Simulated scan of single mutants.
Amino acid sequence: MTSPEAARPVARRTSPGARAVVAALAIDIAFVIAFAAIGRASHDSDVWAGLWQTAWPFLAALGAGWIVTLAWRAPSAPLRTGLGVWAVTVAGGMLLRATSGQGTALPFIVVATLTLLLALVGWRVVAAIVRRVRR
């Protein structure tokens, strides 16, 4: 005789497809570049001329965040991936800015921290809500 638990289907964890991983990474990169572009534009700077200089520390840290969190295993998970990627991106980006002679004034740190939290975790929260609603 089988138990009721044995009769229930077991939820299998499936790994995300390559398309989902690439899409998540592309979204993260787009948000980091948008953050840098908006920041440059808000200070009346030439957005395109200095975009790489502003973005590269955060893009490098984003890459480190993906590696540290093993983000490809659950690329759209808000807590498991999003918070870790965000924390490494902000901390690493600020460290790289400081070591490369770029500014890290407290107001910039606060704005970057909040903006990147909203971007890197926020899209994952929206994706999780959409997935939940579709079920």
Rank of each mutant, 00 (worst) to 15 (best):
M1N: 11
M1L: 07
S3F: 08
E5A: 05
A11K: 12
R12W: 11
T14A: 06
R19W: 13
A20R: 14
A20M: 10
L25I: 07
D28I: 00
F31T: 06
V32S: 03
I33T: 11
I33N: 01
A34N: 15
A34F: 15
F35H: 15
A36P: 00
A36C: 09
I38W: 14
G39N: 12
R40A: 06
H43V: 01
D44C: 02
S45W: 07
V47N: 01
W48L: 13
L51D: 04
Q53V: 15
A55Q: 08
A55K: 05
P57R: 10
F58V: 02
A60K: 02
A61W: 02
L62W: 00
L62F: 04
A64K: 07
G65Y: 02
W66M: 01
W66R: 06
L70C: 06
A71F: 00
A71L: 03
W72M: 03
A74W: 01
P75K: 04
P75T: 02
A77S: 11
A77F: 02
P78V: 03
L79H: 10
R80N: 05
G82A: 07
G82E: 03
L83V: 14
V85Q: 01
V85R: 01
W86F: 10
A87I: 10
V88A: 04
A91D: 07
G92H: 05
G92M: 07
G93S: 06
M94T: 08
T99F: 14
Q102V: 04
I109M: 12
V111M: 07
A112M: 06
T113A: 15
T113D: 13
L116I: 12
L116W: 12
L116E: 03
A119K: 05
G122A: 08
W123C: 07
R124D: 01
V126S: 06
I129R: 11
I129M: 13
R131S: 13
